[in-house]
C-alpha cells in the first residue's frame, strides 16, 4: 500500500515536471520563433518602418537582424537553462 502511494506520488511529480517543462519550452520557443519569423513579414509589409534609421546608419531591420536577434538568442537560452536547472534540483530534492 505504502509502495503504491510512493509510486503514485512519484508519477504525479514526474507528470508535473514534464508538463511544466513543456509549458516553458513552448512559451519560449513561440516567442523566439515569432521574433525571427516576424522579420520577413515586417520587411514586406512595413517597409518604411523597417528602413527607418535608429542609430546612425543602423536601420530598424538591420539592427534587429544582424545584432538584436542574436542577443535574444542568448537571453532566452540562458533564462531557460537557469530555470530548468533550478526546477530539476527541486525535483531531485523531493
Amino acid at each position: 500500500m505504502s509502495n503504491k502511494k510512493n509510486k503514485d506520488e512519484d508519477t504525479d511529480s514526474t507528470g508535473e515536471l514534464i508538463a511544466t517543462s513543456f509549458k516553458l519550452s513552448v512559451s519560449l520557443g513561440i516567442i523566439f520563433l515569432a521574433m525571427v519569423l516576424i522579420l520577413p513579414v515586417l520587411n514586406e509589409y512595413a517597409k518604411n518602418l523597417m528602413l527607418t534609421d535608429v542609430y546612425g546608419n543602423f536601420t530598424v531591420t538591420y539592427l534587429y537582424t544582424a545584432i538584436f536577434i542574436f542577443i535574444i538568442g542568448w537571453i532566452i537560452p540562458l533564462y531557460y537553462t537557469l530555470r530548468t536547472d533550478k526546477r530539476e534540483e527541486e525535483y531531485n530534492d523531493r
Binding site: S25, G29, F32, F70, G73, I76, P77, Y80, T81
Partner: peptide
Amino acid sequence: FGGWVLLLL
C-alpha cells in the same frame, strides 16, 4: 543560429 535555440528548448 536560430535552430540551436529550438534544439535547446
